[in-house]
Design a protein around this nucleic acid. Structure first.
Ligand code: MN
Ligand code: MN
Ligand code: ZN
Ligand code: ZN
Lengths: 145, 145
DNA sequence: ATCTATATTTATAATGATTATAAATTAAGA
DNA sequence: TCTTAATTTATAATCATTATAAATATAGAT
């Protein structure tokens, strides 16, 4: 958190209260919030906060490599990940939660090698899995006995 | 092609000229066309073809597992893949082409194992890579000498 | 072949997340 | 404090997709 703020300053970013609020909210976040969720949460303490500013701040943070954007909800809202590092995600079809999928060794997953695949230069990877999360699987098996 | 038609019949699908046209166009396709591209191409021979029917036919083919939909162009148009089997894709940032990325052995890529990862039941996988295709890489290196 | 009920297609409007715009406000530096 | 540039805000525009309802086509029965 402190780090992000420091890096933003280094990059000459004006640290407005709105930008601080978005950055702070995201870095606290353990899930992958949407623009709406971010906006609503900040508005509770900062009623004049506009959704346009949330968009612009997220764009800024993304361009600086501090966060990443996920398009896992195909035509739905984008979600934002305070962790910009390469990892995969699973969208649970029962509860809608988005889980981090980490292959403990990047070497286990060839698309995490980045660099070059099939003669293509690979600059970004988004791997989206769709299925059912452990919690929902448990609920299902409990119901069935 | 003949196979798809046969399977559609088996599933009790009414084979209208419009549905035939979409199915035929897709199965001929070696790339990953958008709704627009499909519509425009069919309209040349079938001027009354509506875009709504392209949408509805694609939905049908997808539900029957004959094609798959890609959301690799994040907030842009969806593209459709006549090959419903699991494989990855790369979107070239220079030319916009979408390439198939095939790891020759599915065992090389753990997210192709499907079944279960990290206690999650995995039902679908979409791996989107972003970068530069071999053709565009060549053009770049040619320019530089 | 004709009729009828059902399914499909078509044109059109509605949706909804995101982006663009321009006026109002704020921040930074002189 | 004053001035200029950057940022925020409210609002409108965009655009792929989905919903709707009337028109048309299909399939099965007569
Ligand atoms: Mn994540
Ligand atoms: Mn493909
Ligand atoms: Zn779940
Ligand atoms: Zn290319």
């Amino acid at each position: 958190m402190k780090d992000i703020i420091a890096r933003l300053k280094e990059n000459g970013v004006t640290l407005t209260p709105q930008r601080m609020a978005v950055t702070e909210f995201l870095s606290r976040s353990r899930n992958h919030p949407t623009v709406d969720e971010i906006h609503r949460n900040i508005q509770r303490r900062y009623p004049t906060m506009s959704v346009a500013t949330v968009y612009s701040t997220l764009k800024l943070l993304k361009e600086l490599g501090e966060i990443q954007e996920l398009s896992i909800r195909k035509r739905g809202k984008a979600c934002f990940d305070p962790n910009p590092g390469l990892h995969h995600h699973l969208l649970c079809r029962k509860c809608g939660k988005i889980l981090d999928i980490d292959f403990n060794h990047p070497s286990n997953c060839p698309i995490m090698a980045k660099e070059s695949i099939d003669g293509c230069k690979v600059e970004e990877v988004q791997a989206y899995l769709y299925g059912i999360c452990p919690e929902c699987l448990k609920k299902e098996s409990d119901k069935k006995g």
